[in-house]
Design a protein around this nucleic acid. Structure first.
Lengths: 231, 231
DNA sequence: CAATACATGTCGACG
DNA sequence: CGTCGACGTGTATTG
């Protein structure tokens, strides 16, 4: 990895066109050829970048560019998409290279998968007498998170989200429409379960006869003794 | 901005839990208190990070941690969300600070807004005899990109996307459902216009009687003489 | 401030 | 290799 601090301007042309005026920035060149242009603030997203696979070539600035103060010109291209990133460097204030090696990678734990597992184990959160049919119940257009049956044996399809948004309601609606065409399942009721349900999503869901269920993650986790503590 | 190259392990606890095993990485500390942990590959997304506003405190490693080779311990916290990021540093290989100042920011050009403008100007792409009613036609649940009328005066609602995905069809469906309840507009036909329409989106759209229209951005831009060249 | 739609989204899983 | 859904999504816009 090469780290360069420099005053530069940047131009990008690809799916859109974008320009960065002259300023002092960090240029991070990764060993796979990719480049990130970072400012000293904002979030983790760079001001500009080029994703791998791509290649960097340096060009000689022409007379006009030299006149304008450009000392180096980098052209980063992505063959496949024809995207181009041009970095016009004026002054280099720092330049260092470092051998990092391959990263062992991130180990993630829990979110929606965990919620799904917990709700399957605590299926009576749907209401007394409910029984689990199975998780990831397969349909023609994808798996429903949980299929259960209520106290009188009627099918219940559950869509689980961390944050209950309008999209999740649409998704569940598509499943329900399909499942209700199946005489073995029909009638299927829908339950939209999430840690947090947005008002518009709730309105849409209830308008379509879908029940909303707010999940208390901490309480559900607390009940699950087998879940080992991480800290 | 402070740049540190170090062998370190990282633990995050917040909306999920994640762990990075010991390895050599770049730690980027921005002046707003945020921190990014980057490897020498992948895309622009860091392996781990903490978004501003957040604060970094250094802790003294205890006996066990010193024994394990930890020389520095950073704890990054976000007050609002209770997220915590812990960086356990073993060996520091590089450490430099740089004053960058505030970035003037990115200047973007065109995307969906541009497509919308061009289609409004070239409304006959919808078919001969079409006329524009208006862009961003307001409905109770949000603005329809374009409302037009066809050669016989029937209403046409157009949803424009750069990439036509299933979500866009759902969005247009909601608009159409609402607009068709309005006796002044009904019957309203739907047109789903995008530079590229995914097969599943096309299937869903056509199943619902929505016409799909693939937009040739370059051709549309070529027709627009007033659109100045960027390069 | 909250809700919503957009993103050069990125990323992983699956067919 | 494309499609699809999730994301610690982030981010701007608008009510």
């Amino acid at each position: 990895m090469r780290l360069v601090i420099a005053t530069c301007s940047v131009d990008y042309a690809g799916r859109l066109s974008a320009h960065l005026p002259l300023a002092k920035r960090l240029l991070m060149l990764k060993s796979d050829g990719s480049i990130l242009v970072h400012s000293d603030g904002g979030s983790y997203k760079p001001l500009n970048w080029m994703s791998p696979p791509c290649s960097i070539t340096t060009q000689e600035p022409d007379a006009d560019q030299l006149e304008a103060g450009i000392t180096e010109l980098w052209k980063v291209t992505q063959k496949k998409t024809d995207d181009v990133l041009i970095v016009s460097i004026h002054e280099v204030l720092h330049d260092s290279s470092h051998e990092l090696g391959i990263d062992p990678g991130l180990v993630k734990d829990g979110v929606e998968a965990h919620l799904q597992k917990l709700l399957a184990e605590q299926i009576d959160l749907l209401g007394d007498g409910h029984t689990l049919v199975r998780r990831e119940y397969m349909t023609a257009i994808g798996p429903v998170d949980i299929l259960a049956r209520d106290q009188v044996g009627a099918a219940v399809a559950v869509e689980i989200k961390r944050r209950g948004d309008i999209d999740g309601v649409e998704q569940l609606t598509r499943y329900l429409e399909l499942m209700n065409r199946d005489p073995h399942l029909s009638p299927v009721r829908g339950v939209f379960a999430a840690q947090e349900i947005k008002p518009q999503a709730r309105t849409l869901a209830e308008d379509r006869g879908i029940r909303c269920l707010v999940l208390d993650y901490d309480a559900m986790r607390g009940l699950d003794d087998a879940d080992s503590r991480l800290f």
